[in-house]
């Protein structure tokens, strides 16, 4: 009996802490609602004079999706009360995402923005929207059945890989040994960027891949891998990383053996630490992907589509950041991070 009471105490403790947490997160939500000034509610309202747009984001573990959301919310603010946006988190699960899109459809959304979890597994979400006659815009990642969707807003990973490797090729004068740090294998960004690398390497027969491995976007894994590469004593002229987080790990390993001036390091995403490194001349470069812009344009297109206008794909080019243009991008990055914190 005594044990039962103790057990009950524990579960009541759990329930109480859960309630407290719900309360806290409710407050946090309210704050962001005030900040956005858009009437964010749990359900899409289906009234005549407001346009309801449902947004499903793949997940919020990485920074980049935060930028997309911030862009969407910022753009929505311009429309005031005439546009009602609901953002849901698919938690990196395609099946959950499909369910979310189905909910949007049954709630009578006027347009849907889909940031696909997976190229193939999220494709049924596009089919469902098309079948219901609701415009659907994919953002950042395309689906397998992209041609059925109303439009795509994003950047081409193949281009990103090309820009990065092209810079390396020019710096090295078209010959040398390149090592590659891949993101999670099979991720659409990893595949696209790798194809981009290879297309430049084909044009430069005197450049070869000497090492390659996946550090799964993680700094500590990249650090260990590059430590292992360096100890072999083989000559590495440049390291191309699929993300800044991995490039920073590579940089630490290179600094530790005092080869900072001998090896070029390039990343992608333009995270604050990386920009600082470029400013100090410690890191060669990174690539700017305009997440805020992707969010803004996707909402813009969604509103237009809801009004019955015809829309087209919108591709936002990647941009190379080096020491030459760092000032411009540092400022843009600060604005970006401020905005993303506001809607976090």
């Amino acid at each position: 009996m005594g044990f039962l009471i103790k057990k009950w105490n524990l579960s009541s403790l759990f329930v109480i802490s859960l309630l407290v947490l719900l309360f806290i997160s409710g407050c946090a939500n309210q704050q962001s609602e005030e900040a956005t000034a858009s009437n964010k509610s749990e359900n899409l309202s289906d009234s005549e004079d407001t346009i309801s747009i449902g947004v499903s984001i793949q997940g919020f573990k990485g920074m980049f999706t935060n930028y997309i959301r911030a862009g969407i919310m910022e753009e929505a603010k311009k429309h005031g009360k005439s546009v009602n946006v609901v953002v849901v988190d698919a938690e990196d699960r395609a099946d959950k995402q499909i369910g979310q899109i189905e909910n949007f459809i049954s709630q009578g959304a006027d347009a849907i923005i889909l940031n696909p979890v997976d190229r193939i597994a999220s494709a049924p979400a596009v089919d469902a929207a098309v079948k219901a006659g609701i415009p659907i815009i994919t953002v950042n990642t395309q689906t397998d059945n992209q041609s059925k969707a109303s439009a795509f807003v994003g950047s081409d990973d193949f281009e990103a890989g090309k820009i990065q490797m092209d810079f390396i090729a020019k710096e090295l004068g078209g010959k040398g040994n390149v090592a590659i740090l891949h993101g999670a294998m099979g991720h659409s960004a990893q595949i696209g960027r790798y194809e981009g690398y290879k297309s430049i390497l084909e044009e430069n027969p005197n450049m070869q891949i000497i090492f390659e491995n996946t550090a799964e976007w993680q700094t500590d894994k990249a650090l260990s891998i590059v430590e292992n590469w360096l100890v072999t004593g083989k000559n590495i002229d440049a390291i191309a990383a699929n993300s800044d987080t991995m490039a920073l790990g590579a940089k630490s390993a290179i600094d530790a053996v005092g080869k900072s001036n001998d090896i070029l390091v390039l990343g992608m995403d333009a995270i604050p630490n990386m920009l600082k490194g470029i400013e100090n001349g410690q890191i060669s470069g990174t690539i700017w992907q305009d997440g805020i812009g992707q969010g803004k344009y996707s909402l813009d297109l969604a509103v237009k589509a809801a009004k019955g206008e015809t829309i087209d794909d919108y591709l936002i080019p990647y941009e190379l950041i080096t020491k030459e243009n760092i000032d411009k991008y540092k400022k843009m990055a600060e604005e970006r991070d401020e905005l993303s914190e506001k809607y976090n």
């Binding site: 990485g62 976007w217 993680q218 700094t219 500590d220 650090l223 987080t245 920073l248 630490s252």
Partner: peptide, 15 residues
């Protein structure tokens, strides 16, 4: 030790 090794605290590390 992890934070000291990579020089940053990372919410997505050590998956």
């Amino acid at each position: 030790v992890l934070a000291a090794r990579v020089g940053a605290g990372q919410p997505n590390a050590a998956v």
